[in-house]
């Protein structure tokens, strides 16, 4: 079982490594969107510090959605998704593996870039640490829930836009707890409550999302 999980993850990482251009797009998108906000709002430091956590989190959601469109689409087009579904293991395991791979490929880079963007918004060191921590707990949820959307919209016209419509409302709690944790640190009220709620959301997503993604894949491939 674990062997299949790691095989799926290794496979997706190998394929992403062969297509580095695609992979970098989402990361640059993340950087650009966050950098546009000061240009639109003005460079006033106090203001930027207030909106910083929210802006970085919203940009992370969007960057994540951008790469989710391709989570199953390429495999669907070349027929390898069928082979994956027919593999002698549970399809939920496949969905979990795909989500973990998506997080490693697209989520972890966001964690690494986020502190730099936080500095642009004048966040102090402790807030930066909480920002990274909140992203570390929150971005796997984005990959897991997003997998459901990617599976449901497989092969549809305008699937890329549709997935945003389906999945963004589901991302609301992650956004609130994630950005709230950083806000809490800035306001001196602490981030523990937010982070534990985010952790609870992550546990739920791990338990539920792979099964629903698997069902959605079966529905879409049929």
């Amino acid at each position: 079982m674990l062997r299949f999980l790691t095989a799926v993850i290794r496979r997706d990482i190998l394929l992403a490594a062969r297509r580095r251009g695609d992979w970098l797009t989402a990361q640059f998108f993340f950087v650009m969107v966050t950098s546009l906000f000061p240009l639109g709002i003005g460079p006033e430091p106090a203001m930027l510090r207030t909106i910083g956590p929210g802006v970085v989190w919203v940009a992370a959601l969007l960057a994540c959605l951008l790469s989710l469109g391709r989570l199953y689409a390429d495999d669907h087009r070349d027929g390898s998704l069928e082979q994956l579904l027919l593999a002698p293991y549970s399809n939920a395991l496949l969905a979990l593996g795909k989500a973990i791979a998506h997080w490693i490929i697209n989520g972890i880079p966001l964690l690494l870039i986020a502190p730099v963007l936080g500095i642009q918004f004048g966040l102090p060191a402790d807030a930066l640490a909480v920002l990274v921590l909140s992203l570390a707990i929150g971005t796997p949820v984005l990959s897991l829930l997003g997998g459901i959307g990617a599976a449901l919209t497989l092969g549809l016209r305008g699937g890329g836009v549709l997935i945003t419509l389906l999945i963004l409302p589901l991302y609301v709690p992650v956004l609130i707890f994630g950005a709230g944790a950083v806000d809490g640190t800035l306001a001196g009220t602490g981030a523990e409550a937010h982070l534990s709620l985010l952790g609870a959301v992550l546990v739920m997503a791990v338990l539920v999302a792979p099964w629903i993604s698997a069902l959605a894949l079966r529905v879409s491939v049929e």
Binding site: L152, V172, P173, I176, L197, V201, I212, V219, S220
Partner: peptide
């Protein structure tokens, strides 16, 4: 597909409501 999305949504509605209230 709609039914699955609907079920995911209904699991999420209380979480969303709680998070927004919070």
């Amino acid at each position: 597909a709609g039914a699955l999305l609907n079920l995911v949504g209904v699991i999420n509605v209380p979480i969303i409501y709680f998070s927004v209230k919070w």
